[in-house]
Nucleic acid binder design. Sequence first.
DNA 1: TACCAGGGCCTTT
DNA 2: AAAGGCCATGGT
Length: 283
Amino acid sequence: MSNNNIILPLSIHELDLSQTLDCGQAFRWRLQEDGSYKGVAHGRLLHISRSGDEIILHNTSHEDYKSIWHSYFDLERDYALLKEKFSTDPVLCDAIGYADGIRVLRQEPWETLCTFIISANNNIPRIKGIVERMSALFGDCLEEDYYTFPTAARMAALSTDDLAPLRCGYRDKFLLDAAQKVANGEVSLSAVADMTTEEARRALLCVKGVGPKVAECTLLFGFGRVECFPMDTWMKKVMAVLYPKGLPEAFIKDAGIAQQYLFHYARHHGELFTEKSPEEITI
DNA sequence: TACCAGGGCCTTT
DNA sequence: AAAGGCCATGGT
């Protein structure tokens, strides 16, 4: 297996690394001084950078590209077509104009479940710290300071005392419940992948620490269920102010992708949503 | 039904 | 420098 740089012809409109890797959907990507990112996913360390209209996957193989990264970056999906469709709506048109290089990542189900359990009642810098400590303590070392995400089987063998160094607060018991149920098959993530979305929601809600929002994030970011629509406080504000009658019907089946544009826009324009004055807001 | 539970980030004071 | 808000879920 040969290791080379893989060059992908993707403009910044098709894949913006910052918008995609640093937007709150994934927690393990680290911005480097030169604007590139390093991170671990699917047990592999990847260094990814942009050069003009090309994306460079450093020191990886065609095998890994085909089996991992092509899917991880959701490259089979036609975002140009989706954006064209969404842009018929003036609000989404502005949100897409603000950040049009977002893609929804297809992360590993188990890691996604864990990171969004950790995300509950939490903020992104702290989530990243907890996930990094969890990987460093219970994952495998790939390179100095870069570790795989620990398996459910490994986590299932731990106690809350073992998780104390994570400093994840009361979420420790939720992580253990998730690990035990996934490891013993009570919640089978491979079975979830084959369920209808409604069945999958019900299955994930059996895990302690998984409520509707965490389940929706897990299905969107970990199972590629793009109809799933996580409603955090930002999206509640967005919907109340900008879509009081709900998203346009035509967007429902891709609502999760629309959500990414709206969420990113809202996060960066918090002032628009701090007061309850819908009339004044015309993004 | 309303509150609190770790904790740390962030904004305001 | 200090105080207070914030956060998604489960349990009381």
